[in-house]
Simulated assay, not measured.
Amino acid sequence: MKLTLYPLSKEMPQVRPADPRRQWMDDTPESFAYRCLPLALANQHGWEVTTPAGFTATWNGGNLPSDVSITFDTPQTKSLSGAPLANFGSGVLTFELHFLLRTPPGWNIFVTGPMNGIKHGIAPLSGVIETDWSPITFTMNWRFTAPDCPVRFEAGEAVAHFFPVRRDLFEKFEPALDHLNRDPKTYEQFMRWRDSRQDFAKRLVELEANAVEEKWQKTYYRGLRPDGSAGAKDHKIKLRVKPFKKPSR
């Protein structure tokens, strides 16, 4: 399948495969946050758009667009494609994404902030766009969460994260509740996992040498069931998201 990006400005959009690193995860002891595979994979799950210029933005608590002030590190960067602006009001900071995306029929684009990104004083807003037919651009918006709290974005920092999603995704699923013991194989594997986790946690608290050396259980990370058998054949510990290539002349 093809995902096509059409630039709408003379500058090439600063779009890249999503960065797997997060500063707060780097800062955890021994970077242990990366041991959580669901977190690590979510970080990589798509593409991200970066801001071309460093700036500081502040909201004074009002509802007018002018109630958000933006101070750029270099004044002339205000005119760069992808620079932020405040045109909606209500404490919203907007990044115009100067490109169109085209997905295959039946596929939307989910756009949000950097996965597992944390920013004090502001939060990303998420949207879903029908990019298989719409000839309209979309914006990435953030909303301030507190007045008079300056928010800093560095040049090259990710401000948007996007990936395709099927439009009929939820129509295809039939949510159902059931009793776990009605699925004997899953029940057995779950009980093995629960008992193993409790035992490992106990040994870790007691500073049992093997548990301390191992530090964390790696069965899910390795794609193994609690009994040691292989899980899904296509289990992933890393995503290989391809970059957008410039068209050949």
Rank of each mutant, 00 (worst) to 15 (best):
K2E: 14
L3H: 02
P7F: 04
S9A: 15
Q14T: 10
P17N: 02
A18G: 12
D19I: 04
P20E: 07
R21P: 01
D26P: 05
D26A: 08
E30V: 11
S31Q: 12
Y34N: 05
C36R: 01
L39N: 11
L39F: 10
A40K: 01
H45E: 12
V49P: 07
T50Y: 00
T51L: 05
T56P: 10
A57Y: 03
A57P: 09
T58D: 07
W59L: 08
G61P: 03
G62E: 06
P65G: 10
D67T: 11
D67Y: 03
V68N: 04
S69E: 12
S69M: 12
F72T: 02
K78D: 01
S81I: 04
G82F: 02
A83F: 01
A86Y: 02
N87P: 01
G89R: 00
G91A: 11
L93C: 05
L93I: 04
H98T: 06
L101A: 01
P104A: 07
P105M: 03
G106F: 00
G106T: 03
G117Y: 00
I118E: 13
H120V: 14
G121A: 10
A123M: 15
A123L: 15
A123F: 15
S126K: 07
W133E: 00
I136F: 10
W142D: 02
W142C: 07
F144R: 09
A146D: 13
F153Y: 10
A158E: 09
H161D: 04
H161F: 08
P164A: 04
P164D: 02
D168W: 02
L169A: 14
L169R: 14
N181F: 08
N181E: 11
Y187M: 06
R192I: 05
R192S: 06
E206L: 09
L207Y: 14
A211R: 05
E213R: 15
T219Q: 13
R222P: 07
L224I: 00
D227F: 02
G228K: 04
G228P: 00
G228H: 07
G228L: 06
G231P: 06
G231Y: 04
D234N: 14
K236A: 13
K236L: 13
L239H: 00
R240D: 15
P243M: 08
S248C: 03
R249T: 15
